[in-house]
């Protein structure tokens, strides 16, 4: 009965979406940009100096929105930490009880610097190539997660991570306030020198903001995963036994 109702509901939903939204869209491929993106493509190099148009939109044309996005991610991490705080120490203890064995233990440590290096590269080249602060930060947090899977918990201090995260968020706001000091007098205005197209040191404040975003996302997601695994776990047993299997 439930499945029949479900099928009926999604069929009617499909009918609505198809007739109202998609019917005109999928007749043929468009040959030109149809939205405000055309203006963004034209204004990217004169106004921001970045090679990646998407980054110019995210960090400069829509920079305030990105600040809100970072805030939402922070609230999400805060919510997870608050909700999982009560069962800290029990949490996912059953999941993370096993230390993963010899291969995972040393494999995670082997790939840890490589993953972090790739993440930092993606953050630093966010204005030149696909990527940026969010994917790069997630990648760095993935390295932390790989180590956490081996059962070691004490290597990551939540307090230090919180401090790093706070300073990264402050750096974002401070870079934005820098725009108020210029003659353009607007928040997040790109007042630093633009440099030449395609260089790592170009595009004014965009790489700096993405560095702040990358640091914040990495610290936030590391804390998030750590808080899910519980706080007083793995103090004695797994750290010592990890390599001996």
């Amino acid at each position: 009965m439930r499945k029949v109702i479900g099928v009926l509901l999604i069929v009617s939903f499909a009918f609505f979406v198809f007739t109202l939204v998609m019917r005109d869209l999928w007749v043929e491929d468009p040959t030109a940009v149809r939205t405000l993106g055309q203006a963004a493509i034209e204004e990217t190099i004169p106004q921001s100096g970045a090679a990646n148009t998407v980054t110019a939109i995210v960090v400069q044309f829509r920079g305030l929105d990105t600040l809100g996005e970072v805030t939402v991610l922070f609230l999400s991490a805060l919510g997870v930490a608050l909700l999982s705080g009560e069962f800290a120490g029990r949490g996912l203890k059953e999941v993370f009880r096993d230390d993963g064995g010899f291969i995972l233990y040393y494999g995670a440590r082997l790939v840890l610097p490589i993953i972090i290096l790739v993440g930092v590269y993606i953050v630093a080249h966010g204005h030149l190539s696909p990527g940026g602060g969010f994917p790069g930060g997630v990648l760095v947090a993935t390295a932390v997660y790989a180590v956490l899977m081996t059962g070691v918990k004490k290597e990551l201090s939540t307090r230090i991570m919180a401090v790093i995260e706070g300073f990264a968020g402050l750096a974002f706001v401070a870079l934005g306030l820098l725009g108020l000091l210029s003659d353009r007098f607007s928040f997040l205005a790109n007042i630093l020198p633009k440099g030449s197209l395609g260089m790592v040191f170009s595009a004014g404040i965009i790489p700096l903001i993405y560095a702040a975003v990358g640091t914040k996302v990495a610290a936030e997601l590391s804390t998030l995963v750590t808080s899910l695994t519980g706080s007083d776990y793995a103090s004695a047993d797994t750290t010592a036994q990890g390599g001996k299997r």
């Binding site: 963004a40 939109i57 829509r62 939402v72 999400s76 991490a77 969010f134």
Partner: peptide
Amino acid sequence: VDPLPQSLVLTAIVIGFG
């Protein structure tokens, strides 16, 4: 191609993760 939806999706992925 149009960069505007791509930047919107970049935001949407992060929000979806949260």
